[in-house]
Write a protein that binds this DNA or RNA. Structure first.
Lengths: 366, 366
DNA sequence: TTGTAAGCGTTATCAC
DNA sequence: GTGATAACGCTTACAA
């Protein structure tokens, strides 16, 4: 019996109990993995089995070269035999590192998110981190609450398409590492689509087809990207001397696209650009219901190239954004920040976009 | 300076029978300079400010009526003032409860998952729990690893469309609370679509249109639901005296549907039922590329009613499953299990499905 | 290289 | 009702 083992086993007042005072071998023997009631094996169990001190187990399993090869082998074997898994909570306490990252999104059901989630999950698990996903349901209020709740339990946060005010974001970024997706805030690292280029390509495509008056279905006022797309559109429209109207704000959903239909039609624009594909799809569905043929009577385009954009008929012309990549990069940058690497401190990382021309755009009716 | 604060700093705990009398205050001081990484307050800080013992803070913030109203108010005010957030890791250690649930899915990018994730996230956050999402990428191997890694850090696990072997699932369920979605295993609670009814409705619909030979595009052999659908199809085909062939196994993806195209066509079946909508969509896309008109030349149907099924042209006839509900219910059942409620111990919970007839099914060519 | 023991922030048990 | 303190499982100086 090891002295430290005795201490740990001694029934204190707050001992979860083991009525038979010390010998747990009966049930332990049978199961092999369940030494303590309700719990898994600990480094103490492993240490006992391997005949070493718990701290040695910690070292053997943690750092590679800190113990002798022979000891490490013994410890590994014992850990294996007991199905030992390190308790991340217990580890988090002394180290302050939880190896957990949070991804906060506005709306989980928006397909734009899927790519981001997948990329983030991949990058996180590749780094041995756990990813918690939370949804703010398009509400800045709810998002703040979510972030507050998550903060103490994670090493850092990726805010994707956040609806938070800039000051709030700065504040949060001051307390914990943060990376933004689809939003730029001074002093906070972010991963963004290259809005200007994407808009330029799309408007160029439309102008090339002969369109001279455009309508933009904007997203929520809280959407930074929607605002930026609008600004870029204004620049391009001015440069190419095209007519342009903004219709919105709208919810960034299918319903938002449906709701904007009449106003867009009333604008007499010959091409409608939606803030995102979801809105473009809703708009096209409503057009179809009203007997307006896309693209013959009206061209429609979106942004993001979500799942479904090539399914709808006609397939949607859109500006593809590398969503999976955005998820991956944001997590990688977050991890770098957590490691204390401040080299890319507050930069905006622009992701190239790609114009995908499909069936929903054509020359305007003559 | 509060006495308890001093005592907390004094050598205690493991320091049995060997009081070195030396003070640890130097290192304590050094640490005290920068409190917690991130500067967050602890219950000690709150207690100091409120002029009470840390344990009182714990009680005041934890259980409602365990302290006097006056004390509770003082504690709450102090906590507020310090922006105190309870450290979930520290709390998890003595309680064994992490208030974290895991959702493990085969493929995050499969739209079937979206509804499940959303429902699970809603139910979890409604219960004050954090949801970690992990992906097994359709590999049972990877799924086992993921589960092992997650287990010590969560209170329970929802396995959605798991690719694990039954014994492995039973084993996991023996170590931690588990609820299954789209999979039944003896002794483990599960949430399932009512396969038999859904299949009966769909086959009835097809038979009513005049189809007499059906082809089933099966999913992976590891997919429990795919197997069940096949069995139910066999029953129905037999009962209605219809021809039926199985084509597969296939990956449960768009590519899987594309790949199965030629074999399905060769079967001369007039109606093709895919294991899921994704495969049905892939199949329809390939049919379109080959000039085969759906539903005139061939009827196609799927299962799940994912986002995109009503977008594709013709819109897909499918058996809708209440995915969001499945996510919610599974988390609710998991929580009940975690609370120790064994009443619904190992039941299969069947969710009603709904036949959604759209444009992809029609009478067979005469 | 390995053992010793303090400490992470919280809860639970006991004593007053 | 509140204070005191061991314990949760792990890491990490410091000692040996």
């Amino acid at each position: 019996m090891r002295p430290w083992r005795d201490w740990a086993r001694e029934p204190g007042r707050y001992d979860r109990g083991d009525p038979d005072g010390g010998d747990v071998s009966d049930s332990a023997q049978a199961n092999g993995a369940r030494r303590r009631p309700g719990g898994a094996a600990t480094i103490y169990d492993v240490a006992e089995l391997a005949g070493v001190n718990p701290s040695t187990v910690s070292r053997a399993l943690g750092k590679p070269g800190r113990v002798s090869a022979a000891t490490e082998a013994r410890v590994r074997a014992a850990a294996e035999q007991l199905h030992f898994r390190m308790n991340p909570m217990a580890r988090a306490l002394p180290t302050g590192r939880t190896n957990t990252l949070a991804l906060v999104v506005a709306d989980i059901t928006n397909p734009v998110i899927f790519g981001i989630v997948r990329g983030a999950e991949q990058a996180a698990s590749a780094a041995g981190c756990t990813l918690v996903v939370a949804e703010s349901q398009e509400s800045g209020e709810a998002e703040g609450t979510v972030v507050d709740r998550l903060m103490p339990g994670v090493d850092g946060i990726v805010l994707a398409t956040t609806r938070l005010a800039s000051e709030r974001i700065t504040d949060i970024a001051g307390r914990t590492p943060v990376v933004l997706i689809n939003r730029a805030v001074d002093g906070v690292p972010s991963v963004l689509p290259d809005v200007a280029t994407g808009v330029r390509e799309l408007v160029g495509h439309l102008a090339g087809l002969g369109h001279t008056s455009l309508a933009y279905l904007s997203g929520p006022t809280t959407s930074w990207v929607s605002e930026r797309r609008w600004e870029a559109l204004l620049d391009e429209a001015e440069r190419l001397e095209l007519g342009l109207v903004e219709i919105g704000p709208n919810p960034p959903t299918i319903e938002g696209g449906v709701a904007a239909y009449r106003r867009a039609l009333a604008s007499r624009a010959t091409a409608v650009l939606a803030f995102n594909d979801l809105m473009a799809i809703g708009f096209m569905q409503e057009a179809a219901r009203n007997g307006v043929v896309v693209p013959d009577a009206l061209s429609v385009a979106g942004f993001d190239d979500i799942f479904g954009s090539e399914l709808i008929s006609p397939a949607l012309t859109t500006v593809r954004a590398p969503l999976v990549l955005a998820g991956q990069l944001s997590v990688q940058r977050l991890l770098r920040r957590i490691e204390g690497d401040e080299t890319d401190a507050a930069g905006e990382q622009l992701l190239g976009t790609e114009l995908v021309v499909r069936g929903s755009t054509a020359p305007p009716p003559s």
